[in-house]
Structure formats: C-alpha cells, structure tokens
C-alpha cells in the first residue's frame, strides 16, 4: 500500500514526512519575515518604537519586569494542566475501550467521578467565575 517502504519502516518514513512538512511550514514563515526585513523600508523613530498605551507615554512594561496580572490566569493555567493530563489518560482508554469492556467501563466511570470531584470543588470555590 505504501510506496517505497516495507511495513517495518513505514512509521519512520511517516515521521520523516512529518518533519519535512514541519520544516516547509516553518520555512514559509521564515522566508516571509526575511523578505519583509530585506524589502521593507526602515525609517524607525523613537515615537514609532514606543509601546502602545492608548497614546500616553508607556510606563514600565518590557519583558520580564514582573508585570502583575490577575491571579485567575494562573488558576486557569493550572486547571488546564490538570484536566489536560486527565484527557491524555482518557485517550488511550477511549481507543482501546471496546476491547476492554466491561473493565474499561468501570474504569472510565471511576475516572470521570474522580474528575467530577475536582470539578465540583473548583466550581464551588468559584474559580470558574470571572467578575
């Protein structure tokens, strides 16, 4: 079915294809940026290079200066990590699900119930509120 590859080597070939795709895709971006850098005009002025703050002179800012933002974003990030990992666990189970019934069913239910415990907890903790 596959051209030029015995079944043994097929995955490797596919990964090579993947890398080629990735390189081409990134290459397009790089080429575009380079083209613009070469072709575009360069007439920078101080005002032009200032960060935009609705027309006022920018205060502070800059990378890594410890700008503060609502702690909520941290919470979302953490919740995401946790739930995403849960999802990652669920994928193999889902793929193998039909072969593993009935064990997998109880497994899945237990898993979802545990997940729900955490979900109810964050719900009650009002982590999911943005006000």
């Amino acid at each position: 079915m596959e051209r030029g590859a015995d079944p043994e080597r097929r995955p490797t070939i596919e990964y090579a294809n993947f890398v080629i795709m990735l390189l081409v895709a990134l290459g397009i971006g790089i080429v575009a940026v380079l083209a613009s850098a070469l072709l575009g005009p360069k007439k920078a002025s101080r005002a032009k290079l200032m960060a935009y703050e609705s027309g006022n002179d920018p205060e502070g800012g800059g990378v890594g200066t410890g700008q503060r933002f609502p702690v909520h974003f941290y919470l979302v990030a953490m919740l995401f990590i946790i739930f995403d990992i849960e999802t990652a666990f669920f994928y193999p189970l889902a793929v193998a699900y039909q072969k593993l019934i009935p064990f997998a069913f109880f497994e899945a239910i237990t898993f979802v119930l545990l997940l729900l415990v955490g979900y109810v907890y964050i719900l009650k903790k009002k982590v999911l509120e943005w006000a």
Partner: peptide
C-alpha cells in the same frame, strides 16, 4: 512514562502555585 508525565503535571500545578504565592508577596 504516562504516570511520570502526570506526576510532572501535578508538580507543575502545585509548584507554580507555591512559587506564585511567594512571588506575589515579595517580588
């Protein structure tokens, strides 16, 4: 490896929480 990845994620969550808590208090 799966388990270890989960552990790593849990560590990230808790570790970042602690680090953020400290950082917000004393920069």
């Amino acid at each position: 490896v799966f388990i270890v990845m989960t552990l790593a994620a849990a560590e990230v969550a808790i570790g970042l929480a602690i680090i953020v808590a400290i950082f917000r208090k004393r920069e």
